[in-house]
Every structure is written in C-alpha cells, then in structure tokens.
C-alpha cells in the first residue's frame, strides 16, 4: 500500500521535492508555484530565454503514453533552465526488449539522472516511482491514468490569475468528460485550495463521476444552467473512444448539447474567459469562432505552460537538492567543517 501522495512529494520542512498531484498541497505552496512561474514568464519574453538555474542537471522525459505537446513543453522548460534533457520513447525501446519498468528506471538513475518527467497510462505510476523506485530522483507527474495532471492544472490556475486577476471568489465551470479526465481532477483540487467561489462541472450524466459533489463541485447537466454567471469556462477534450463505449450518442449530439458556441457563451459573464487544455476538436467541444474569439485564452495557456513547468522543475530540484545535502551532512557529521558559506550577501 502506498502513502498519501501529497506527503511523498514534500520534504520534511514542507517544500516540494516531487510534483505528483495538486491534491493536499497548501494554498501557500500552490501560490509559490504561481509566483515563481510569473517570474519565468518575464524571462521567456527576452531574446535570451535561458536562465542558468539547472545547469549541469540531467532531466529524462519518460513518456509511456504519447503526448507531443506536453513532452515538448517539458523539453523546452528543461532547456530554458539550462538542464540537459533526454527524451526516451519508452514504449518503443527498453520495455519492448523485455526489460522491466524498474530496471529501466534504475539504469537511468545509475546514469546520474536528476529528474524524471513521467507520463503513464496507469493511475499512481508517478507516485509509485517516487516512493518505491527512485526516491532520490525528482519525479514530475506529466499525467497518470485518470488520476492527475498537476502541471496542466497549475498552468490553468496561472491563466485564470493573469486574466481574471485572482482565483479567489471566481466561478469556474469545467465542461465535458469529467469522468475520464485527470486534468479536471487536478483542476478541481487546485481551484478549491486557491479559493474559487464555485467549481461547477457540466456534462452528460454518463461522463460525470457519481461522487463529484464530494470533491466540492456542483454538477450541472445543461449548459444554460451551469454557465450562468461564470468567470471562467474550461472546455475539456472529448476523446473519441468514449463514443465507441456508448457513453455518448454521437459527436453531433454532444456538440449540440455541450459544444461551446457563441450563443452558449452569452450565458456566462461578458468578460468570462474560455480555456481548453488542447488539442482542441473544432466543432466537437468548441466552435471555431469561440476558440479563435476575443474571450479565448487557449494559446496563452500554452505559453504559460512552459513557465509553470520551469517553476515546478526548479522547485522540485531545489527540494531534492536540500535532502541530498542534509543526507551528505549527516554522513560527514564528524568532519567539522565550519564553512563561511559563500553565497548571497546577507542584507
């Protein structure tokens, strides 16, 4: 049995050392991630986009499930922190030769890797690796099964904060396939912790989890009711395989009821923003006029995604480093080096 993931990801003094889930993290810590990401946005706007923070560190992208966009933004984030990054197409390489997941990871650890960015189809995969396989490598969860996608949720929080001023007091609606969405789960935890006034989920009954209200959400089955007075509308991607599983009648039917059109957008506040984690299915969950319209911040989300990933990578590496140092100190307790620490002047 594994322990609470929110604890596995923290050092003894409460700093991030892995990033596995938004669930159970404090408001202070989530805000620190957003503040750090804000600073990285300004470095992204320079001609020289790199900062030297993670110079010499090695990051490995371990994508057991395909995702070009998420993988590329993690790759860019690592590069802009000056880390070295290795992309492993894990599905095609080691595991195909019969090597177990654990052996693959231990081999990568033996190559002095400092951080693994993990995407896996099984819920809890990143947590399992952080706790049992390579606890001294910082693990960033880039999506695990139906469980969590915490960096996506945090880039959404940053988008809301930058475009609506704050998350506190806002009414946010998440629309579509909530049942299978790790993004929605991570968003709900972050929104609740950061003080959103209301978190609503809108979709057909077959795609809303039964226990959704236990997470502090209100469930709506009609767009007209759910979007009323909303500040933020988050559309989720509709996965086509859901149609084959008979959870949905047809794409056309879904679009008619839940697709975001200019008309349905008028139910929300006039300054409501429209978000989508991408890639978008035009004409299935969102109309082109809305996706490309003035209230859409979908492409801003992509830019902020890099800054948020830089922030959690830097923070997790920092926490991980702290633990390594403490361990090294314990091991050489007797060496009696009273060093005058070179570093920033105390002022």
């Amino acid at each position: 049995m594994t322990t609470d993931p929110s604890q596995v990801q923290l050092t003894a003094d409460g700093r991030l050392k892995h990033f596995l889930t938004t669930e159970g993290l404090s408001r202070e810590l989530l805000t620190e991630i957003l503040d750090t990401a804000d600073s990285f946005i300004s470095t992204q706007e320079r001609d020289v986009k790199k900062v030297p923070l993670l110079r010499g560190k090695t990051v490995v992208n371990l994508f057991f499930e395909n995702s070009t966009r998420t993988r590329s933004t993690f790759e860019l984030a690592a590069k802009r922190l000056s880390a070295d990054i290795l992309n492993l197409d894990i599905a095609k390489s080691a595991t195909a030769k019969g090597e177990t997941l654990m052996d693959t990871l231990w081999n990568l650890e033996a190559m002095y890797s400092d951080m693994f960015v993990v995407r896996h189809a099984d819920s809890g995969a990143a947590h399992f690796i952080a706790e049992h396989v390579t606890p001294n490598v910082a693990i960033i969860n880039a999506g695990d099964g139906r469980h969590a996608h915490p960096t996506q949720a945090m880039l959404d929080m940053l988008t809301i904060r930058r475009h609506q001023g704050s998350i506190e007091g806002k009414i946010v609606a998440i629309v579509g396939d909530i049942l299978h969405s790790r993004v929605a789960r991570s968003q709900i935890h972050a929104l609740r912790t950061l003080g959103a006034a209301e978190v609503r989920v809108i979709g057909p009954g077959t795609l809303l989890p039964r226990d959704i209200e236990a997470l502090g959400c209100k469930a709506y089955y009609r767009m007209e009711d759910g979007l009323k007075d909303c500040d933020v509308i988050i559309m989720l991607r509709l996965q086509k395989e859901r149609m084959q599983n008979a959870l949905l009648p047809s794409e056309g039917e879904f679009f008619k009821l839940y697709g975001l059109t200019e008309e349905k957008l008028t139910y929300a506040k006039p300054d409501a923003i429209v978000m989508h984690p991408g890639p978008i299915n035009r004409g299935v969950e969102i109309e082109s006029n809305v996706a490309d319209g003035p209230q859409s911040v979908i492409l801003n989300q992509v830019s902020y995604g890099i800054a948020v990933r830089m922030a959690v990578m830097a923070m997790a590496m920092s926490g991980q480093q702290q633990e390594r140092n403490e361990l090294a100190e314990q091991n050489s307790e007797q060496s009696d080096v009273h060093n005058n620490e070179p570093g920033q002047e105390e002022a």
């Binding site: 503040d35 470095t43 993670l54 480093q321």
Partner: peptide
C-alpha cells in the same frame, strides 16, 4: 534585478522561496 535564477549556490541552498522577478 532579482538574481534568484542566477545564483551560484543553487546546489547548496536551492531556490529562494520568494522569487519576485526582474523588471
């Protein structure tokens, strides 16, 4: 200027908890 991302002691002390950014 916020030098948090440029300090040479990241491996010793980690990231400053309150990065404010440069303007």
């Amino acid at each position: 200027l916020d030098i948090s991302f440029y300090r040479d002691d990241f491996t010793r002390h980690g990231l400053h908890p309150q990065v404010k950014g440069s303007e």
